[in-house]
Amino acid sequence: MLPETDSHALSPAAAAGEETGARRGPWKRVFQGLIASPTAMISAGLLMLIVVATLLAPVYAKHVSGTDPFRSGLSAKIKIDGKPTPVMQQSTEGLGLGVTPIGPTWGPQYMLGADGQGRDVAARMLYGGRNSLLIAGASTLICLFFAAIIGIAAGYSGGVVDGVLSNLIDMIWAFPVYLLAISLSIVMIGKSFALGPFEISSGSLIVPILIIGLVYVPYVARPIRGRVMAINQSEFIMAARGLGIRRWKILLRHILPNVSTTLIVFAPMLMALNIVTESSLSFLSVGVQPPNASWGTILQDGQTLLYSRPWVSLAPGFAIMVTVLLLNLFGDVLRDVLDPKSARGR
């Protein structure tokens, strides 16, 4: 890499130091950059709202919809305009055989209608959102953690370690992500197993979290490795080495803080990607397992009801779209604040 393209990519610490004589902290500058951007503030605020709404799922289920969204309500009846109406309605099409779940009432009960098992979709949306966000967030952390370790180990040690690790990364990355995830899911889902000291029960959310977290490790580890190698060549590291500072101290004091910005830039993008991945895997029935809900499983429930009750599919799709959009918008601003060079192109 050219030294010229490299100089921009110093840590916020270095960048802020150049600009303000190192009086303001680096993270304060990033924070102020975010505050100053209406896009970042609005998207962060709306994301917060989504999180709070999903956290209030039990309250909604108990006091508003008044149903248990995890028990099938095939014979349940609700009052509409004072008349008791069954949740599963006799089909009016064709021979009149079979039942169709109730459509959106736009009232407190079954606001978005019921799914194939007569469960309140609106309440499941909130519970499902909780799981979708939890899985996406946790798998993002797992992915960043392992990617950082592998990327730094490969980039900093070089030589044989780098050779082995980066070839392994390349190989796993050549494996199509979804196929890898499907293969992992099919052997891990549906049975309990021990992971070290922990007993993981079948249908646990840990399984999709681990799978989604691990499949994107190469995607992040590769740029981290490149970043570490570039920093390693830069003058301030050479100076530190010249001063006789120990290798691990250089790693902790100088490499890690500089890599952390790259990791942070990846976080919202990765979380957005993970939300979509979770929904896709759950749609293929290898993600979140019933009776647990997630936006992906609701989409799967809605698949057979697509033409008769489109809202079962529409609602989770919109939820995913809005959440991912907000994460990407926030991530764009975050990247521009942390890495001013990327903002130049705009």
Binding site: S279, Q303, L306, S313, G317, M321, N328
Partner: peptide, 22 residues
């Protein structure tokens, strides 16, 4: 394009079906 990236591909397909097949 920002919206396109945010939508799961199978959901886009379902929406297309909803419009063209219904």
């Amino acid at each position: 394009s920002m919206m396109a990236v945010a939508m799961p591909v199978f959901w886009v397909g379902e929406m297309v079906n909803l419009v063209t097949q219904n």
